[in-house]
Design a protein around this nucleic acid. Structure first.
Lengths: 92, 92
DNA sequence: CATGCTTACGGATCACGTAACCATG
DNA sequence: CATGGTTACGTGATCCGTAAGCATG
């Protein structure tokens, strides 16, 4: 399980398309497509309908989404806490 | 930020030594040492005292520990939920 | 035919395992 | 000197970006 893939998943959901997410993340579309496929493969679960030429979040994706958000949020909070620790360490 | 590194961190704390953690994780000591160093480098923060020939969790490590545990726990819960989803999917 | 996703492929980076080394109790 | 951690190094896997291809509205 890779955090980068979860962040990519969230970015694609929030941006609406892989293309828009790639602009936001300053990465190439192919990279995001492959990360998403890797995530779906790893979970053994399709998160989007890949049938049309646009991706659509499916039922499973909607169930996984809040958990992925929570994990990424916790990671960001940990990063903030670490920065706080180092700041206090320097202040003391 | 890599989840594998957090899991390694927890394993080292729980097992007490890198050696014991490497047995538990079925990996080599060098790999765990390097993952730990990578994590500390990434956070910009020493989590252990590296002075003796045994690692000792320091104050910063004790602060980060519960957050790391929470993140890993959330990831495991997500994995379980995904398995549940796929089970139900197969049942229906 | 414009938009958006996917696949192919080459290069770079990362991660591991074996082996050798260093430090401490 | 036994135990535990670290460094060196070569190999295998992973990831990305460019380029090309495919599908749909």
């Amino acid at each position: 399980m890779n955090l980068r893939r979860l962040e990519t998943f969230l970015a694609i959901v929030d941006a609406g398309t892989v293309t828009a997410a790639s602009v936001y993340l300053q990465a190439g579309q192919p990279a995001l497509t492959k990360q998403l496929k890797a995530l779906e493969s790893e979970l053994g679960l399709q998160l989007f309908d890949h049938e049309s030429n646009r991706l659509h979040l499916n039922a499973a994706g909607r169930e996984v989404l809040p958990m992925a958000r929570h994990i990424v949020q916790c990671v960001n909070e940990m990063k903030s806490s670490v920065q706080l620790i180092t700041s206090n360490r320097h202040a003391s």
